[in-house]
Design a protein around this nucleic acid. Structure first.
Lengths: 294, 294
DNA sequence: TAAAAATACTCCATAGGTATTTTAT
DNA sequence: ATAAAATACCTATGGAGTATTTTTA
């Protein structure tokens, strides 16, 4: 039995007339007669009562009619689905992102993509840069929002580059400076993110301090950033955070630039060039758009 | 696209190996290669990443895999259903019955059939003998439990023949007789069923009275029978009912035979011989069984 | 180098066409 | 008499087979 048989059978069942059914499915009447006969033979079931003048469904025929119609509908839906999937309009996409990415364009990108491709399921996972590299390599995620530099063969779209700013409790003496001299930080208690969460940036921050002639006194290593500035607000110490974090209005915390060039935190979308799913290019298209107009 | 393509595709998707897939569906490997190629071409979608050594589903391929498997399952179910329907094990049966049939073997027949063929839906309609004849002719019901004689070409199974008994209020003077002489009924008020509900029986009751030398004084024509004996219990009059009605224990009512031969009420299952659905023979089989053992 | 997919080709079953017959209304 | 299904017969597409080549892990 093939779909052809179902198609012809449904046509006859709908028309109750072999000639018109043949017309409907664009073949000739004897073919319909023959194919229905073969179908009945294979099923071992009489589907129609028929004389040379009248055609009528048998009871088993009525049952099969319902089933056959639904099957043909499902086939159409399947074809449609696979073609949509091929165009990247249906399916799923695993996305990795770091904590800081949340305070940038990422939410807007996600929202725009969701609106444009509602049949694509976006699976978002917050993981640090290093683990995203592994996930990209293993195929656990298809695209990552992470911070260079990274090892490996990836493609990139740069989303934005941010400077670091000093987060201070609002009653801290250093708030009097517009640009805080770095030397003033030598005796401050620092709240930073854990070293393994961003090895490169961590080292660059240490280097900056070193060049200013001191080693920072780190009293807490925590994540995510809202927790860091929470500790700042509580007076535990000062912190260096990405400037986009100022988007969150946190009472009790003020931000100041430093008088030296701070390490920069670049956010990129990264993916492996091989075996990209059809969804990915559509997603990257949105990434490019949103990045350019902002 | 034909079911064959789906079958081969599912085999390859499951095995991820053209050779083993070919073995699974009992054809040779080059055929699989060819058919998958044609399928991909027709859909316009690449379903597998493949080198000469490895086979892997693409994202659209994964979507199509799910769909194809479900479609093949549905096809199997459809074939099973139509064959069950052909054996009369699945489908529906419209059954007509008269009120009196309810107090006989009908409930047991229905229960037995339901237990044996749970996938057959029984549609029961209470309609009088005359209307059942029409319904059988028009195909509104396939089998009827009714009371002969009837006009038309039907097949019959006789379920039972019942005599009529006299229903009296428990405090009625005639209850003193074991067999009530028919002459004593000449001045009684009668409660009968409406004439059109059972023309033949009605006339035979009238004839019986006529032969005893009187015309019955009919004060109420009502249906169904429980209502009739309700009126008897209320002292409105006496009634003639089928003896199976004694199965319902109605306080305030007693039953007595007459001293003459009463009209008999035969209950039969009737159906048209042409275009019987496969369910009907199974049902009639149960009717025969239950009738014989009781 | 060996396993596995693709290619080349051959064959034949059957889908589908045309012409005609049969039959019920 | 006629509409409509069935039958008879023909053609050719393409499904399935065998043998071989190509490729990559």
């Amino acid at each position: 039995m093939e779909l052809r048989h179902l198609k012809y059978f449904v046509a006859v069942a709908e028309e109750l007339h072999f000639g018109r059914a043949a017309e409907k499915v664009q073949i000739t009447q004897p073919v319909i007669s023959d194919q229905i006969r073969r179908l009945e033979q294979e099923l071992g079931v009489k589907l129609f009562f028929r004389t040379k003048r009248t055609v009528e469904l048998t009871e088993p025929g009525k049952i099969f009619f319902k089933e056959a119609k639904q099957i043909l509908e499902r086939v159409e839906k399947a074809v449609d689905a696979v073609q949509k999937a091929d165009r990247g309009e249906l399916g799923s996409l695993m996305i990795g992102y770091t904590g800081p990415a949340l305070y940038t364009l990422l939410p807007k990108i996600i929202r725009t993509f969701r609106d444009r491709y509602p049949q694509v399921e976006l699976v978002l996972k917050e993981i640090c840069t290093n683990e995203q590299v592994e996930a990209l390599n293993s195929g656990n995620i298809e695209v990552g929002f992470l911070h260079p530099p990274v090892d490996g063969e990836f493609e990139f779209i740069s989303i934005m580059t941010e400077k670091m700013v000093l987060a201070l409790p609002e009653d801290h003496p250093l708030t009097t400076f517009t640009k805080v001299p770095i030397s003033k930080l030598s005796n401050q208690s620092f709240i930073l993110f854990p070293r393994h969460e961003g090895l490169s940036l961590y080292n660059r921050i240490l280097l900056m301090c070193q060049q200013a002639g001191f080693a920072p006194k780190i009293v807490q290593e925590v994540t995510p950033q809202p927790t860091m500035i929470g500790l700042v607000a509580a007076g535990i110490g000062v912190s260096l955070v990405s400037e986009s974090l100022q988007n969150i209005n946190r009472p009790g915390v003020v931000y100041r630039k430093l008088d030296v060039t701070t390490p920069e935190l670049e956010l990129v979308a990264a993916w492996k060039k091989e075996k990209v799913s059809p969804v990915l290019p559509k997603f990257l298209q949105v990434v490019t758009e949103i990045t350019r107009i902002n």
